[in-house]
């Protein structure tokens, strides 16, 4: 077997492996349609929250959102009971949104549907993805524009928990 042929076989095996490794985390049938929301409703939710809130603005058509979704899922699981995670799906379709939540297993935190993108605009954000960090009671502590990385997310959650403490 020539070296080139071996490389081709190896690449094909890797490609098949890659395809096999990625699959929907949860069945889409278990994901209900997202509840529509407004800026006022989100402001009220933040004001009433007894826990700090991480509010992530996403859309199923947004490629960078795909990149940070697994991180947010893991962070929500790790901070469960201490930090409330809220997703705002903007300028999207219900089917696409449900597929996105199912694909990344994001059913561990609450999501709302914002067809016009009014919520992030009200919070002072532009574009997607956006991640806002709120203290209990709704005070904005930090806002991150663009894809959030592990270190930044962990740092901001740590800051929120220390404010709460």
């Amino acid at each position: 077997m020539t070296l080139r042929r071996r490389w081709r076989i190896l690449l094909a095996a890797l490609a098949i492996g890659a395809a096999a490794c990625s699959s929907a985390s949860v069945p889409i049938e278990g994901i209900p349609p997202l509840e529509a929301t407004t800026p006022a409703a989100i402001r009220a939710l933040l004001a009433e929250s007894q826990q700090p809130v991480v509010l992530n603005v996403w859309a199923s058509w947004c490629t960078p959102c795909r990149s940070e979704a697994p991180l947010l899922r893991d962070a929500a699981a790790q901070a469960a009971g201490k930090v409330r995670f809220v997703g705002i799906d903007v300028r999207d379709q219900q089917d696409g949104a449900r597929r996105f939540i199912a694909e990344f297993g994001l059913d561990g935190f609450e999501h709302y549907f914002d067809e016009t993108g009014a919520v992030p605009a009200d919070l002072g954000g532009v574009g997607v993805p956006l991640t806002f960090f709120f203290a209990p009671g709704g005070e904005l502590i930090a806002a991150h524009r663009g894809v959030i990385d592990e270190r930044t997310l962990a740092l901001q959650i740590d800051e929120l928990l220390r404010i709460e403490g």
Binding site: A18, A19, S22, S67, A69
Partner: peptide, 14 residues
């Protein structure tokens, strides 16, 4: 990407 559940073949831009 694979660890996070994204297929690099279907989403090469990621």
């Amino acid at each position: 990407m694979l660890g996070g559940g994204t297929n690099p073949l279907t989403h090469p831009g990621d």
